[in-house]
Every structure is written in C-alpha cells, then in structure tokens.
Design a protein around this nucleic acid. Structure first.
Lengths: 327, 327
DNA sequence: TCAAAAGTGTTATCCTTACACCCATGT
DNA sequence: ACATGGGTGTAAGGATAACACTTTTGA
C-alpha cells in the first residue's frame, strides 16, 4: 500500500512564472512575465522551464533557483510553489508527441531594475498580452462583450443535461465573468482561463484537440503546452496573496511614492483603486515608513518617498493589503 | 531552455490525507485521518500513498482517486491538491535508502458513515493523535508549556546571528505559538510543525539525522517519511479553506443540527466558537435550509434539522464560514 | 497663474463582537 | 419541576466605502 515494486519513471519539469513590474514610477505600470525567447518567429511563447535533477538539488525550489539564475541571469527574490500539473493532452506538440511530463509550476517575483540586460534567452513581456481580458484598469474591456461572452454563451447553451452537483456552464459563466449581475472577482484568473479553454475559445484548446471547428479568434497570445494555464495560476495567486501578505514590495524599488505603490497594486490586480482609502489602508497596516526624501519627478506637487518596513514581518502575521473598494 | 535532452526519471508518489469526522452528532466530534494499517506493531503510521502511472491515468487526481477507491474502498468526495514535496532527506528509511521520490500531497474529504467497514489495509485514527498541540477545544493544551516551549526556546536561543531578511527563530516562535503576546492562528499548522521539526523535537527530525542527541520526548505520534508534514499541510489547508468555501458539508451527514455543525467546525479548527455568532453567521451565509424535521436525540429541547443548500454554490462565489470570535 | 498631482477630514453603513435571557422537551 | 440543551434580541465598537476639498510644486 505504501510503495510498490516497479517504479514508474517520469520526468519532472519545473516551470516558473517570473514576474516583475516595469514603469513602477510611471502612470501605468505594466506587470511583466519572463518568457523564453522563441527559437523561431512562428513558435509559441514559453515560460522558462527546466528539468528537476534530484541528485544535484536537495529540494525542488533549490533546483528551480539554480537553473533560473544560471540560464536567465534573473535574480529571484520571493518564490512560491503553485501547483503540479500532470494532465496528459496538455502537452500536445506539433509532432504529436505527448511526453510523460509532470510540471511543477512556480511563481517568482523580481525587480525589473535588477535584471541583467544580457539575460541570454529570455525576455520580459506584459502579462496582459496573454490575458487582455484581465486588465480592467481602463474599465471593462470591450473584448469581453465583443469576442468572449458570445462564444461562451453559445458553449453554455450547448449543455443539455446539467451536471449533478457541479455548477452548470451557465452558472460558472455568471460567477466568473459576472455575466448578468456584475461581480468580477479579479482573483479567479485560472477559473476564467479554464472556462474559455473548455469552451474551445483559445488556441491551446484547438491545438490539444478540443473544439472541432477552425482555429478560433485568438483571445490573447497563446503559449506553449499548458504554460498559459500556469501563468493564469500565478496571476490569480499573486492577486490573492497580495491581500494578506506584503509580497507587493518584492516588486517595488527600495523607495517609492504612495501613488507608485497604488499604481503597482492596480497593475497586478487589474483594477483601479480608491486613492484615499488606499492610503488609509497603507497607514493602518503600517507597512511603510517615510524616508524623509521627496520625489520631484511627478509633474505636480512633490511626493513623499517611502520604504517597506521589513520589521512588520516580525510584528504581525498577516500584513497584507486588503484592497477592497473600487475607484 | 525549454526541455533538455536526457530526461531525469523520478518516481512520483501520490499521498493522500483522507479526512472524515467521527461522532458528528456527539458533543465532541473527532477529525479522523486514514492511515495505512502498519505492517508490524513497531512500524510507523503512514498515509495511504501510491505511485502515479501516467499511462493509466490522464491526470494526477484521476490516478489518486483510482488507487484510493481500489485499495481502501473509501469513496472520496472533495479532493484538493496540497503541495509537491521533493526534499531529499525527508524520505530517510530504516535501511538508509533515500529513494528519489517526489510526493504530491492531496487533501480528500469523506464521511465516516459511508466507509465500508472492510477497508482492507487502512484505518481511521484521530488526527490530534499526531498533533495534540493543535487541539485547543478544552483550552490551551498544557503540553505546550510543559514539553514544547522549553525545547523551542532553547533552540531559539542557540541562534547566534539573526538571519538577514528572514525572521529570527525567536520571532517565528512568537508568531506561530503566540509565546508572549498570545495570538495563536489555528491555520498555521504546517509552520508550527516545521518549527518543531527544525528544532529537532519530533521523532522524524531525529530519524532524518537532525538534532544530534537522544531521541526526544515524543511530541505526538510520528509518521513514516514526511507524512506528518503532509498531514500538517492538510490540516492547515482545511482550516483555512473552511472559512471561504463550504467544504465542511463534505464531512457532515445529509441532515444535521446547528450544534452538530458547530461542533464539527470546532473539531476541525481546534477551538471553541461563540454559539450565537456562529448561528448568525450560518444564517447570513444562507448555506443551510431547515428540513422541517426535528432531532430528539439531544437530551434537551429537540433541535431543528438542516441540510446544506447545494445551490449556494451557484449563487455566491465564496460562501464559507468566516469563523471569527472565540467562545 | 494655472495645470497636475499630492495629500487630508468627515460621515454613513455594515459587519463583528459581546452581552443575557427565554423556550421546549425528556426524565 | 428541573435539568438540558435549543434558540433569539439588541447594543457597542470598529472597519469599510463614499463623499469633496486644500496644498504644493513646475512650467
């Protein structure tokens, strides 16, 4: 019952969603994701990924850190395991091989400023290029109503008998996209992606053999294998984690203005926040302290500079930013 | 960068923490964990665990469900992936083998009533037998002050230089066990276990070669390999998840009284709750509906029977029980 | 002097916590 | 009748959401 005789050998791939934010001090910072530079112009974008070698590395995370720093030159700060994916069919390749790979997904945070320009084979791309419908900072993206909901609703109406226990397609749609009532919980990035994958609306689904017809209108840029699913998991986890742990500061420079901090939180969560309440939140959480210096780079009145108070980690167990109200 | 040439073959073990609650209608229900019946009287308890066969099973979860139902006869309802552990050294065995096993831990919930008595090789044991310090229902366990904190504090004071960035041992102790100020967050089961493991206070640490001296006073019953760590992860995850998803009902019978529900939540979270507030919470969450029947089995006034409203899953995305106040 | 962004004060509302008392049944 | 647990009303305090206005600089 505990361990059987003949081991079933499988390769373990470690795949990292490495996130940074560009333009932290600008008015519209962009969350960036490190993608392996495509071998050819036509090949799909891929997350950096490498095999786990249990002989060389004592733990999975150590293995991950080793090859990331070796191959991409990107220094990782915060690292968190996301999920282990073992789905056959989600590794479909051009030549129809479907290797037995189990991939352990990781979220890692770093700062754009710290990145060696000469990162050999990898480049940062805005994460909303892969998930345009997740960026609500300029209001509800109209691609939702133009391109996505029609297809999703068609797919939902194809469901004949409601599955017992599980919510129906229509209900999942309503819950995840706020189809009629309006709620859109920014944390459910993965759930939304899986929905449009199941509905056959993304290129990956087509490639994996789901959805018979012709290739669908591309909804965001696609990725190799199940890498977009891993990125979706990372985005959702980061958006959720931010609310109860001060991970956002892993993406900020040493000092920053409160507006820069707010814009960065907005960039990650994909929605605008209420200025005064955001500031009150920061104050009550006591996660930052003024440096005494001012930033004159803002265009208007100079802004006070702050830094993260590292010692809050010792004070309270959960000093996150429970962002609540919309703008 | 994406996939290298020679695959590193590893065995993937799926390990399940299968939880049920016994005595749901009683005054002190006990959370139970399914353990593989030990081969001999001296051998350590083990969680049910089996290899993943990617040829036979399309996903990890399907593989898990297959061998669990086949080998233990326990029907799994809710299943959730916990974490993937790849630590070398945590699989130390009597004969010093340390196989290259990566174990994917799962949490699964079931009902004691539904368990086939003839579960061939497995038996349910109270989970607090492995984590006695996590049961605060009868007040602060005095083993904390008698057996644990002295050892932990000794270990903390051995730390010479504070590690940069990371919290010091003393701080971790204070945060996780509420040493001086008093907070004890019931969700941090894993963090507490890792602390006492690092401090060399559990049998597993001794077995893995940490902590030089003699075998320590046993703190709870030990388990094979890193299975107690997986159980700790499961307990923490279930305690946390309960607060924002209605998973508790996976452990309840079809109908139940509100007190039975409260006692079950208390059993899982390990602390007593405030009756009136618990009821208001249940009411405002609208997660249950009265059946109209009464239970006369309580000894006093008969109690109304309720059932879980499965349709809340369709209404609101997060109908959990955000239990807050202590008794 | 005016545009542009920083920064603050106040109130209404809801949720959380805490308190104490009444009710219906079996023995 | 009384012990036993079931069941409820209400008020204080704090957190959250929403409102609009003043301040300080650079151009």
């Amino acid at each position: 019952m505990t361990q059987t005789s003949h081991p079933l050998a499988i390769e373990i791939g470690l795949t990292a969603a490495i996130v940074a934010v560009s333009g932290v001090a600008s008015d519209l910072p962009e969350p960036m994701i490190l993608v392996a530079r495509p071998a050819s112009a036509t090949s799909a974008a891929a997350l950096p990924s490498g095999p786990f070698d249990p002989v060389a590395h004592r733990t999975l995370e150590i293995g991950l850190r080793a090859w990331v720093s070796e191959q991409t030159g990107v220094p990782l700060g915060y690292v968190e395991q996301l999920y282990t994916f073992g789905d056959r069919g989600r590794h479909a390749m051009a030549d129809d091989r479907d290797p037995h790979v189990v991939s352990v997904g990781y979220l890692a945070l770093t700062r754009t400023g710290e990145i060696a320009q000469e990162a050999p084979d990898a480049v940062f791309r805005p994460w909303y290029a892969f998930f345009p419908w997740e960026d609500w900072r300029a209001g509800r993206p109209d691609m939702l109503d133009r391109l996505m909901l029609p297809g999703l609703q068609a797919w939902a109406s194809q469901e004949t008998a409601a599955p017992q226990g599980r919510p129906s397609r229509t209900e999942r749609l309503r819950l995840m996209f706020g189809a009629d009532n309006g709620r859109f919980d920014e944390d459910n990035v993965l759930e939304r992606y899986e929905l449009i994958y199941e509905a056959g609306l993304v290129e990956e689904a087509h490639r994996d053999g789901r959805g018979a017809g012709p290739a669908p209108t591309p909804l965001g840029q696609s990725m190799l294998h199940d890498h977009r699913r891993i990125l979706a998991t990372a985005m959702g986890r980061l958006r959720a984690k931010m609310k109860y742990r001060p991970v956002i500061f892993e993406l900020m420079p040493e000092t920053f203005t409160l507006t820069a901090l707010q814009r960065t939180v907005e960039a990650i969560s994909g929605r605008r926040l209420h200025k005064q309440n955001f500031r009150r939140l920061i104050e009550s959480a006591a996660v930052v302290e003024a440096t005494g210096d001012m930033s004159h780079a803002t265009g208007g009145r100079p802004a006070a500079l702050f830094r993260f108070r590292r010692d809050v980690l010792q004070e309270r167990p959960a000093p996150g930013l429970r962002v609540g109200a919309r703008a």
